[in-house]
Amino acid sequence: MSARQATISDVETSGKRQALLGAGHVLLGKLGQALLTLWATVTLLFVAQAVLPGDRATIYLNVLEGYSVTRTPEELAPINREFGFDRPLLVQYADYVGGVLQGDLGTALQSRRPVTDLILEQIGATALLAVSAIVLAWLIALAWTLATAGRHPALSRIGATVEALAAGMPHYWLGLLLLLAFAVHLDWFPVVGGDSWRGLWLPALTLAIPLAGFLGQAIRGEYEHALGQPHVLSSRARGTDEWRVRVVHALRPALIPGITLTGWALGALVSGAVIVENVFSRPGIGALLVSAVELKEFELISGIILIVSLVYVLITFLTDWLYTLVDPRVSFERKGEA
């Protein structure tokens, strides 16, 4: 409910602003917003690193050697020189922003490899998992909505309950149950997923089921509302096939909140992917992140967060455009009036 409220108010405010800007500037405005978001992200991440308790060179040496002791200035000096920890914060900040602009996210302390390389090596596996999960989630949510919504009240209620249950499932628990049932007992899928195609099914399903629950909750209300609208009644009166009525006339307008939610759910999807990759021993950002936290690799964690927000910004941009395809009343120029 909160998601929908927010969307409505967002549409209203952006509608006002867009009316002021005029049609041609809307895309430019959105681009500016996206850039602002990314700049703020970089700054927030830098501040988080800068205010971290403890001396960074000390932490680095302690992590490298595996025990915590107080370090002498002689020990710290070369580290500070190598990573530039001793320069003024403003210089470090300018350096960081400059680096990010060139795609340089710093160097991982332990492996001494560029953070960008480390992330690029792993992001493919996670992206594949996330995209498969989104596709699966949409298929499940659409099938479930068409099968249970706008039918007998009892069936509809069961459908909604199942959606709420699915949406609330913790990923690790769902993953464990699927793993135990389909990999250990039935032996349909490998226990250790690896990066095989057969190993992708269970992790993708684990991510997809809660997402499908969320999507279903968003679609159901709009779908049932649309079924009672005059245009549905009139197309039924014209003798249109029931499936056509449901899919074309009722389902299509109901997709909008689902699309909004998919963009918004990306964050939840990344969080979920980290856990799912851990459950199924899949390569990807998750494994990288866990090792980064264990080793206190701030550059690596910040880099991952930065890449994720970049993707998030892109997806938000994309969903805005997707609206126009689904609902002809919505266009970039007059989204607020739709």
Binding site: P53, V270, V293, I301, S309, Y312
Partner: peptide, 21 residues
């Protein structure tokens, strides 16, 4: 804007960042 930006960060990632800090 700040709220919108922070909403873009996955909960788990932010939690992990602060657990690290």
């Amino acid at each position: 804007r700040l709220i919108e930006i922070l909403l873009g960060f996955p909960t788990l990632l932010v939690a992990l960042l602060f657990v690290t800090l």
